[in-house]
Design a protein around this nucleic acid. Structure first.
Length: 271
DNA sequence: CCGGACGCCTGTCGGC
DNA sequence: TGCCGACAGGCGTCCG
């Protein structure tokens, strides 16, 4: 579910409620996520103060006095800030109960999400170590994309969704960025020149930035920490719009599977 | 190294 | 109405 804009929206939403708070306790009802929640995590967290709430790619990093929680929402994960003690519903797998009456609750029907724990530099964690640059950071531009794509025979869409190349771009925003850059999603990555790499990098940044300002995209079940939806769905140009007219030229949007993911594009505008 | 397929899960939707 | 397959915002792992 959540791509960079949704995770960043959640981060901004929860950070003010978590920072400086102390964790009363962690209550786990279901340990079987993408990876099992570490045994004994409850003991490790109890009483610790929350010092930071950051994001790396689609991971949330909750920094404590000693150690860091790594939280990933997978396809269907969501976080809510709720009054402590509210009865858990189906798929509410855990609560991080804070010391002033609130709790952070994780719901994740498909259980592709993860809650992990490290007492070392979190960026050195095996799951984060090999991640590519942040698209909205200083280490990502057209030259990055150009270098990463040389010699690559795979589709450009697969390349921009590869977290070793650039983090945070999932299926929705990959489709939208390729439309904005007028690049066909199946175009071989290695055959795209400097200029179009620059255009593509720029629109990735534009689309993600705009999506963050809209609070992300709510299609089915994404909600922010306070239960409000994100409003970027209204801005989607091609994602989920098969057979609708292209907003630019009017030709019907086509849908095709590329790299096991649904891809939407305008056959006339995107080459 | 690279590219592609698979599997992990549950819920929903469309077709019959 | 019920059943069944396809599909859904991710991503680590395995195989050729």
């Amino acid at each position: 579910m959540p791509e960079l804009p949704e995770v960043e929206t959640i981060r901004r939403g929860i950070a003010p409620h978590l920072l400086g708070q102390r964790i009363d306790r962690l209550e786990v009802r279901e340990r079987r996520l993408r990876w099992p929640i570490p045994l004994g995590l409850e003991q490790a967290l109890a009483g610790q103060q929350i010092d930071s709430v950051e994001r790396r790619g689609k991971y949330l990093l909750i920094g404590l006095e000693r150690g860091t929680l790594l939280l990933h929402l997978g396809m269907s994960g969501s976080l809510r800030l709720l009054p402590a003690g509210l009865p858990a519903e189906k798929h509410d797998h855990l609560d991080l109960v804070l010391n002033q009456g609130q709790m952070l609750r994780l719901r994740d029907p498909r259980r592709f999400g993860a809650l992990l724990w490290t007492t070392e530099d979190p960026l050195g964690h095996p799951l984060l170590r090999a991640l590519g640059p942040e698209p909205l950071g200083e280490n990502f531009d057209g030259a990055t994309l150009y270098r990463a794509s040389r010699g690559r025979r795979s589709a450009i869409k697969a390349l921009i969704m590869d977290s070793k190349v650039v983090v945070g771009v999932g299926n929705i925003y990959a489709n939208e960025a390729l439309f904005a850059a007028r690049v066909h999603p199946a175009h071989p990555a290695g055959r795209i020149g400097h200029e179009r790499c620059a255009r593509l990098a720029a629109v990735i940044q534009q689309v993600l930035t705009e999506a963050v300002t809209q609070g992300g995209t709510t299609l089915r079940d994404f909600l922010r920490e306070d239960g409000r939806p994100g409003y970027f769905a209204q801005r989607l140009q091609v994602y989920g719009r098969a057979r609708e007219p292209c907003p630019s030229c009017g030709a019907p949007i086509e849908q095709q599977r590329i790299g096991q993911r649904s891809s939407f594009y305008c056959p006339r505008c995107q080459r």
